[in-house]
Nucleic acid binder design. Structure first.
Length: 434
DNA sequence: TTTAGGG
DNA sequence: CCCTAAA
């Protein structure tokens, strides 16, 4: 019995339109019948599995199966309905008589198969997948019962499909099979089902697969290497990350393949939350905050640091300058390790980039002090003169970039603020800024 | 793996 | 801040 039930489920899974039908098949309104077209076309995709099961076998097999299945429903009424449908079929399609020979049934069955093939040809994969999903919904409600019952059936059939449907019914009526063939049929159908899954991945699956594939290769010529600072180091941390992900707005964590991919151009121009006045507060971002934001980046490659840019605080800048004074330029990893160990969001690259910006800033100030017309890109965040002084001096001592001849830097005219404070003696160690 | 350089 | 090449 269990086997029967299982088989019944297989049957309902694969062939939705060869089932008991109550009431008459009346054409449904156009808008509804359109949807139904797909319903009826969908199952016949099974016919394409020519290697697995032929149309004739299929019908015959289900003749057996339907009989077993009818025990659950009402076999008598089913047969009566089928007889009724046969009559309808004769009048609606080709005006054939209600009593037919087996040969006729075969012809019609093949004819229906041909029609089905044509219909399927016009049916898009998307529609088919939709159909499949809808039928899944029907199945879950009705269990083994057929989805085409009562109103559902009436609303989803149109003239064309009635023909196909009835043809198959007719075939079932005429082709009967012995019960002992059930096991063979079941195994056949099982393998057929498996093969179908192998052969016919849904369009959604294909698209998702393609998406994930393209995402993996997107924008990278070489295989993505794991950033040292984007590595999950402990399970504790990963657990923490998971919590962060759940709390993070979805549009900022494009982790899933189904989430629309953010284009590179979009990523490169994020909204910057630039503070209105000067630096951010001198307070360092809390360690937990940094950990939250950047540990999420560790697990999600699509995490965009640009969207969560951390403004450099004056404290950080001073610390960076101190580090350069101590270790020199080009040793960003060391500086990071020794002075920014508590700032997980500052990578050695960040330190270097910041230093480059500091050099630019100092140069800007030089030009301004010389009276050269120069734009001030960071007017909103003026650096303390003392800091710029130190940057300038450090630039002379530790020229950056290394390759470039330090002459250009050394020969540059010292900025006015440096000249004015010439009497000042610089302490190159860690020093306090006024 | 780290650093430099360009975007 | 990102990406890539080179050391």
């Amino acid at each position: 019995m269990d086997q029967e039930v299982h088989f019944c489920q297989k049957f309902t899974n694969m062939n939705y339109h060869w089932v008991k039908v109550e009431g008459s098949f009346l054409p449904a309104p156009l808008n509804e019948s359109n949807e139904v077209d797909h319903f009826l076309v969908e199952p016949k995709s099974d016919h394409e599995l020519g290697n697995c099961l032929r149309v004739q076998d299929f019908s015959r097999d289900f003749g057996y199966e339907i009989q077993t299945n009818d025990a659950e429903v009402d076999e008598n009424s089913f047969r009566q309905n089928r007889g009724l449908q046969l009559g309808k079929l004769s009048s609606e399609s080709k005006s054939q008589g209600s009593s037919r020979s087996d040969t006729d049934a075969f012809e019609i069955s093949e004819l229906s198969a041909t029609m089905v093939m044509e219909a399927e040809f016009n049916n898009t994969p998307v529609e088919r997948s939709l159909t499949h999903e809808l039928f899944s919904g029907l199945r879950t409600r009705g269990g083994c019962a057929t989805p085409f019952e009562g109103n559902i059936c009436n609303t989803i059939l149109d003239n064309n499909n009635i023909h196909k449907f009835n043809t198959n019914e007719n075939y079932l009526e005429n082709e009967k099979i012995s019960d002992e063939k059930g096991d063979i049929v079941a195994s056949k159908l099982a393998s057929c089902s498996r093969e179908r899954r192998l052969r016919k991945p849904t369009r959604r699956y294909i698209e998702e697969f393609a998406d994930s594939k393209s995402e993996n290769n997107k924008g990278r010529r070489k295989p993505p290497t794991k950033d040292k600072y984007l590595k999950v180091t402990s399970t504790e941390e990963s657990n923490h990350i998971r919590q962060v992900q759940m709390l993070t707005p979805k549009d900022e964590l494009h982790c899933g393949t189904s989430v629309p991919v953010q284009s590179r151009s979009q990523r490169r121009h994020p909204e910057k939350h630039v503070p209105v006045s000067g630096f951010l507060s001198e307070d360092e971002p809390s360690a937990t905050e940094c950990k939250n934001v950047y540990s999420s980046a560790k697990i999600c490659k699509k995490y965009d640091r640009r969207k969560h840019q951390k403004m450099w605080t004056l404290t950080e800048v001073m610390r960076l300058v101190d580090g350069i004074a101590e270790y020199g330029t080009g040793r960003w990893t060391r500086i990071k390790r020794h002075l920014f160990a508590s700032s997980p969001h500052r990578t050695p690259i960040d330190l270097r980039d910041k230093w480059r910006n500091l050099l630019k800033a100092s140069c800007v100030n030089i030009q301004n002090s010389k009276g050269t017309e120069c734009k001030q890109p960071h007017a909103s965040r003026p650096l303390p003169k003392s800091l710029l002084q130190r940057v300038y001096e450090l630039a002379n001592i530790y020229p950056y970039p290394k390759e470039r001849s330090p002459k250009s830097v050394r020969e540059a005219t010292p900025p006015m603020y440096l000249i004015e404070s010439n009497s000042l003696s610089f302490n190159w160690g860690r020093k306090k800024y006024e």
